[in-house]
Amino acid sequence: MKRFFLVLICLVIFSCKGDKAKETEINETDNDSLDVEGLLPEGLAVSEPVILDLEEANKLVELPLSCINTEYPNKLGQTLENKEALGEPHELHPAFYGCFDWHSSVHAHWSLVSLLKQFPKIERKEAIREALQNSLSAQNIQGEIKYFERKESGSFERTYGWAWLLKLQEELNTWEDPMGQELSGNLQPLTDLIVQKYIQFLPKLNYPIRVGEHTNTAFGLTMAYDYAETTKNEKLLETLKKRAQDFYLKDDDCPVTWEPGGYDFLSPCLSEIDIMRRVLPKNAFSLWVDDFMPQLKNKDFEMEVAEVSDRTDGKLVHLDGLNFSRAWIFYGLAKQYPDNFGHLKSLANEHIAYSFPNVVGDSYEGGHWLGTFAIYALQEAQINVKK
C-alpha cells in the first residue's frame, strides 16, 4: 500500500511539474576557509572535519594545473571508423586532451574554476586563468564538437563525461567574472550538444546501469539535473525527472552490503539515493528511502571506509574516489534533511579523513582525477542547502 501511495504522489507531482526545491543561502564570511561544520541536530556528535582552506587549495590546484597539458599516457576510448580517424590526443580533443582521458580533463577544468571562485587569492590564480583561456577557446570547443559529430562517436563518454561537461558549464555560468562569462559562451555550443544527447538517449534507455564506475546512470542523471536546475532548462529537467522515476521509484532493499566492488568509485545504492532526493518531494522521498535503504535513517548507521591496497594501481585507487563520492552524498542528505539524515555528516567526515591525505603527492594514476572528487565533496559540504 505504501508503494502504491508513493507512486501516486509522484505521478500527481510530476504531472504538475513538481514543487521546485527552495535554496537556502549560506552566509560566506570568509572565502579563505570553507569547513564542513554546521546544521546537525543539537547534541549529535560529529567526527573532526577536513577543512579546505587556502593552504590546501594551493596544494590541490597543482593537480589539475599539471595534468591538463599532460598528453601522455592517454586513454582515448575511441572507436575507429577508419584509419583516417587516428590522431594524437591534442588533435582529436583540442580542449580536453590531457589528464589521461577526456572526462578527467573536463573535470580538471571544473576544479580550476571551482578553486578560483572559492579562493580568489589562490597563489596560482594567473596561471589558472591563462590555462582556462587557452583550453576553452571558441576554436578548441568547435574542435570538440567536430569529434562528437563523428559517425562512431555517438556513445563517446556517455553519460559520465557528459555529466562532468554540464558540471563545468554550470560552474562557469555561476561565476561572476567577465572571463567566466566569456568561457561560458565558448563552451555553450558543446553543452547544447550534450544536452540534446541526453534528451535523445534517455528515453531509449530501457533499464538503468547500476554499477560503481563511469556508466552509472544515476550519477549521470544527478549532475545533469543540477545543471538543468541552475540554468532553468525545463525540457532537460522534465526528461531527467521522468527517467529517474521510471528507473528507480519501485526499487526496494538495495543490497548495500554487497558494496563496495573492487574497482568502485561510485556507490550504486547511494548514487540512486542522490538523484531521488532531488526529484522527489520530502514526504515521497522519505517513504521511498524506507523501502530502498531504511537503515540509512538509523542514527547508529555505519559504513566502513573503502580501503586502498595499492595507490599506484589505476583501478584499485578508485576506492579513494568512492570515499569522496560517498561523502558528498552523505553531506547532501544531511544538509537537505538534517532531522532524518544529520548523523551522516559524521560518516562523511570519516570517509574524507581517510582518503584526503593521499590526494596530494599521489601517483599519476590517482592524482589526475582524485583532486576533483575531494574538491567536490568538500564543496558539497558547504553549499547547495535545500529545504
Rank of each mutant, 00 (worst) to 15 (best):
D313Y: 08
A95S: 12
T29C: 07
R326G: 04
T79G: 00
I51M: 00
T217C: 05
T159I: 10
I9T: 12
L319S: 07
N349T: 09
N82K: 10
G38V: 10
L333I: 13
L347F: 06
V360S: 02
Y198W: 01
G366D: 02
V61N: 01
A353L: 10
R150N: 08
I329T: 12
V61R: 01
F201H: 14
E88V: 10
H107N: 06
G212I: 10
I383N: 03
L316D: 08
L270K: 03
I273S: 02
N74Y: 06
K17Y: 13
E213I: 15
F247K: 05
F119T: 01
H109L: 05
L193H: 13
F324P: 03
G371D: 06
C99W: 01
S104P: 05
D35E: 02
S105N: 13
K232S: 09
K59W: 10
E170M: 12
A348W: 03
P64Q: 04
F265D: 04
N233E: 13
R158N: 14
T191W: 00
N173H: 07
G314K: 11
L344I: 11
K387S: 14
E88H: 06
F373R: 01
E272L: 09
D226E: 14
D192K: 14
F292V: 04
C67E: 04
